[in-house]
Design a protein around this nucleic acid. Structure first.
Lengths: 137, 137
DNA sequence: TTGACTTACCTGTATATACATGTAAATGAA
DNA sequence: TTCATTTACATGTATATACAGGTAAGTCAA
C-alpha cells in the first residue's frame, strides 16, 4: 500500500537513535560516545587526518568536527597540530592514551555489533549497507 | 570477508546525518526540523498523545520529548494540556497553526522523499525498512 | 489510612549536529 | 605585486539527544 509514504528519514533516524543507545551502552565503561569511537577508529587506520577530511570521510558537517574533537582533546585521546605545509590546516593525531582506550573499546563494541548483526545473514547485512548507500546517492 | 567488521551504528548514523540534512534543507521554508516534522505527523494522525507515548512511538528517550516540544510550543505549533484523568500525565495537542504548517511542509517533504526513494524499487524500499527493523529487534 | 512502590514528567548537565558567519591563510589573475 | 577569490578552521547560536537524578501523583498492600 502506502509504503512510499513512510518517511525514509524517520525510518533511518529512529534506527540510528536506537543503535546509538545500544552501542553507547556497550561503550559506557570507556566513556566514549558513538561519534568519538568512530573518529578514533578512523584515526587508528589513517592517523594525521585533517579535520575537514574527517568530516568528509564520516559524513559530518565541517563545523561539527571541532565540537566533536573538544571533549576528545580534554580527555587526551587526540591532539591537534598545525600542518607544516599549510598554516590554515591542522592535523589530528591519536595519542597513545587514545590507542589504548580504543583497543579496550573494541571488545565492547564487538558485543553490540554481534547483537546487532545476529539476526541478519551476511548477505542481508551486505544488502542493508547497499540499500543505505543508495538512499543518499 | 571483513563485512562484519563494518560498524552497523556508523553505517546507519552517517546515513541518518545525510538524510537529516536533505530533509531539513527541503523543510527550511517552514522552519521545521526533521524531529519536529515527525512529531507533527504523529499528532496529525493521533492527536492528544502523551509525551511518553510520543517517545515510545518514535523511539525517542522520554527525557528528550520536553526538549523537542519546547520550541514547538514557542512557535505555537502544539500545546500541552493536563490530562483530566491523571494529574501526572499531559496531553500534547497540535494547534491549527501546527496543522497549517504541517500541510505546507508535506509538499516540501515529498520532494525530499521522492529524491531519496528515486533509485530504489518499491521492493527494495520494503526490504530496506525490513532490514532496518531487524537491526534493532 | 498509611507508607512503599511505581509512574510520568521535568531539569541539570554533557555531548551531538549543523547553519550563518567570521578570520586567517593560500591562490591566482590582472 | 596586488587584490579578489577560495580554502580551512573556528565561533555564536539553536536544536537534538539522552543519562542521572528530582518531584509530584497514582497504586496497592498491610
Amino acid at each position: 500500500m502506502d509504503e512510499k509514504s513512510i518517511c525514509a528519514a524517520q525510518a533511518v533516524r529512529s534506527t540510528a537513535r536506537l543503535l546509538t543507545r545500544r552501542y553507547e551502552d556497550a561503550l559506557r565503561p570507556t566513556g566514549l560516545t558513538a561519534s568519538q569511537y568512530t573518529i578514533l577508529s578512523a584515526l587508528t587506520r589513517h592517523n594525521g587526518l585533517s579535520p575537514s577530511k574527517i568530516g568528509e570521510v564520516l559524513s559530518f558537517d565541517q563545523t561539527t568536527i571541532p565540537r566533536l574533537l573538544d571533549p576528545m582533546r580534554r580527555k587526551g585521546l587526540v591532539q591537534l597540530l598545525p600542518d607544516p605545509n599549510d598554516a590554515r590546516r591542522k592535523v589530528v593525531e591519536i595519542t597513545q592514551e587514545g590507542r589504548d582506550l580504543f583497543a579496550q573499546a573494541n571488545a565492547l563494541w564487538q558485543q553490540a555489533q554481534d547483537r546487532t548483526l545476529d539476526r541478519l545473514s551476511p548477505e542481508e547485512w551486505s544488502q542493508a549497507r547497499s540499500l543505505l548507500a543508495k538512499l543518499t546517492d
